[in-house]
Design a protein around this nucleic acid. Structure first.
Length: 414
DNA sequence: TCTGGGGTCCTAGGACCC
DNA sequence: TCTGGGGTCCTAGGACCC
């Protein structure tokens, strides 16, 4: 049996935690550049503020002091997330941290009162961390997801274990709201006269497989209480690392693009070292704005590295090679990024027989650099290609404090 | 005027092999 | 006129998730 614990309006709830004045008020949290809405309080949802919408659409609500707006404060959110996961771990079940605000628990033998357990989990997380959660419980992850969505509308938890309640629930949810079904699959399902969860569950298995592929079939089976998605150790075997940003100013030439890319490469490389991983294949991508009327261009390029590495200069060097393959003059670039693929444990790398082995030297240099930057608590040492002027002109005008991770930001109680 | 970032997995098509 | 069949691997891009 699977239990899904899902934080309600997570980022907004984190903001409300340290700011009691926000209670019962419409609040939203914005994406990186203060661009679009990525979290909404229930009150904001009631005002028809939509997920993913650019914030300028709601200028009138802000100017009239109806809507409270926050820039994203990921330092705060990940610390709160960590506390929630720790609390969940204390229950002693096998656990998968699925995202910053969700975790699956798997219960193998149960001869106790499930309902009591769910109530207990909610209580403990609220008491220890202060974040409200919704909990769903069912035989498969897909059904547990559906249950947790329902829990939000009911009293915070929902158990879907008998056929009647499952079927009734599925009749009342649109196929698009099923985990794993996006707009493309939904379109195909509608063509097949499958509109809700119930239609999907009792559809013809072969038709599903033919039209929606292996993933559609797995979802179909999961609705029928056949487990296709098991618990995963999400962080130990991560397969890629990505750093990407949109630019507030469009970029017109390869030099400026290289500078951004070098910075992203450096950030990605330090992530790799943090996870004790190395890569031997780099993808970089660039694109112009999806929204602007300027000519559109989007491209990506993958490049292989002969020896697995997490050495920043290597990664910068190869990302430039990749960029040269796809860069075209005359476009206004809005976004770029780097993805490191094929990650392996840094302990098991294969070195090059014919090259002088300087891996140890490289590792020591990176270690020293990371340490100096860590102690300084900012990036005092970096590579010149990253550029000296790192100002992204990031708008982050409404950022809350790092209440739980910075001594200077700790709340004072009079 | 202003529209996010970080992931996983699958698939189609091309290049190549025998 | 008629021109095989069965693979692998790589890459780009799509679809989905939060």
């Amino acid at each position: 049996m699977f239990i899904l614990v899902d934080c309600n309006n997570f980022y907004v709830s984190c903001e409300k935690l340290f700011n009691p004045k926000l209670k019962n008020k419409p609040v939203v949290v914005l994406s990186n550049n203060d661009g679009c809405i990525i979290s909404r309080s229930n009150e904001a949802k009631k005002l028809n503020v939509l997920m993913g919408d650019p914030i300028f659409k709601y200028k009138h609500l802000i100017e009239n002091n109806i809507l409270e707006v926050f820039s994203s404060n990921f330092t705060l959110y990940s610390d709160i997330s960590f506390r929630i996961m720790q609390t969940l771990e204390s229950f002693g079940f096998e656990m998968e941290i699925y995202s910053v605000d969700e975790a699956f628990l798997e219960i193998k033998n149960y001869n106790f009162d499930i309902e009591k357990l769910l109530i207990n989990i909610r209580k403990k997380i609220f008491k220890w961390v202060g974040i409200p959660v919704s909990i769903g419980c069912a035989k498969t992850k897909t059904l547990a997801k559906i249950a947790s969505d329902l829990a939000k509308k009911e009293n915070g938890y929902k158990i879907l274990l008998n056929k009647e309640s499952i079927d009734l629930t599925l009749k009342n949810i649109s196929a698009i709201d099923i985990w794993g079904i996006g707009s493309a699959c939904f379109k195909k399902l509608k063509y097949l006269q499958i509109f809700n969860g119930y239609d999907y569950k009792y559809a013809d298995e072969n038709i599903i497989k033919k039209n929606l592929g292996i993933n559609g079939l797995k979802t179909f089976l999961e609705l029928n209480e056949i487990v296709c998605f098991s618990l995963q150790n999400s962080f130990e075997n991560r397969k890629s690392v990505c750093v990407s940003r949109s630019f507030s100013m469009k970029i017109k030439n390869i030099e400026d693009l290289k500078e951004k890319l070098a910075l992203f490469a450096s950030m990605a490389a330090s992530k790799l070292r943090k996870y004790k991983l190395k890569t031997d294949s780099i993808t970089i991508f660039i694109n112009t704005s999806f929204h602007s009327k300027d000519p559109f261009y989007s491209a990506s390029s993958l490049i292989k590295i002969p020896i697995q590495t997490s050495f920043t200069p290597d990664i910068i060097k190869y990302s430039f090679l990749a960029l040269n393959k796809i860069y075209k003059d005359g476009f206004l670039y809005k976004k770029a990024g780097i993805i490191l693929n094929n990650l392996i444990d840094e302990k098991v790398i294969q070195s090059d027989f014919f090259e002088k082995n300087i891996t140890d030297t490289k590792n020591r240099l990176m270690k020293t650099m990371d340490l100096i930057n860590f102690k300084a608590n900012k990036k005092v040492l970096f590579f010149l290609s990253e550029g000296i002027e790192k100002n992204f002109h990031h708008s982050q005008n409404n950022k809350s404090k790092k209440f739980t991770t910075n001594f200077e930001d700790i709340l004072k109680v009079d």
